[in-house]
């Protein structure tokens, strides 16, 4: 095969691949495309009401929506797969946010370990056993499905069960502002 023929083949193939699968990254959009949802309806979006759930924490105790909110202004659910990005987020929350909001429960949602003992082991190995966080073993992916959660997803639920925030963790500023605005 001549070199020029090779170039043409690669360029055509590359062009087809690029046009087929580049998503929105080549030309990012800043348009607000959040779907309109009915406030108070059941769902995982902001302003919707969280469907009830029952998930074990790493001590084996069952945590429900009601118990997570009992006597508190709200609850934070952070989805972790025990990775470095997760660690930086959790470390940030532990040092700068949790001390400011003693009237909020903070949960780490382990959606990858598959068992209570596995989640307990991962929390311990990563230095998040005990303290201000309660680690939940989302063995049946209940919370993952409810909130469409993945690595870094941060959800704030107020004490009426309404979602106030559901997005990727950033620098903690929005989380802090959302918690400060809880009634």
């Amino acid at each position: 095969m001549s070199f020029y023929k090779l170039i043409c083949t690669i360029m055509i193939t590359g062009g087809l691949l690029l046009s087929a699968g580049c998503g929105d990254n080549l030309f990012p959009s800043g348009e607000d495309k959040r779907p309109a949802v009915q406030a108070g309806s059941s769902g995982g979006n902001v302003s919707q009401k969280v469907p009830d759930f029952a998930v074990a924490d790493i001590t084996g105790a069952t945590v429900t929506l009601a118990s997570s909110l009992a006597g508190k202004k709200g609850a934070v659910f952070y989805f972790t797969m025990w990775c470095p990005i997760c660690d930086s987020h959790m470390s940030n929350m532990r040092s700068t946010i949790t001390p400011l909001f003693p009237d909020v429960n903070f949960y780490l949602v382990d959606y990858v370990s598959g068992s209570v003992s596995g989640a307990a082991g991962a929390a311990s190995a990563n230095g998040y056993s005990g303290g201000v966080f309660v680690t939940l073993a989302d063995v049946n992916h209940t919370l993952e499905n409810n909130f469409q959660g993945t690595m870094g997803t941060t959800v704030v639920v107020d004490n009426t069960g309404i979602i106030r925030l559901n997005e990727d963790f950033r620098d903690g500023t929005r989380l802090q502002a959302t918690l400060a605005a809880l009634p």
């Binding site: 929105d24 990254n25 990012p28 959009s29 800043g30 348009e31 607000d32 495309k33 959040r34 779907p35 979006n45 469409q148 993945t150 997803t153 559901n166 997005e167 990727d168 950033r170």
Partner: peptide, 16 residues
Amino acid sequence: DRSVNREYGKYVEPYT
């Protein structure tokens, strides 16, 4: 820098 209006399939309030 880029605009972001979606994270892991969920549309969010746009930011840079």
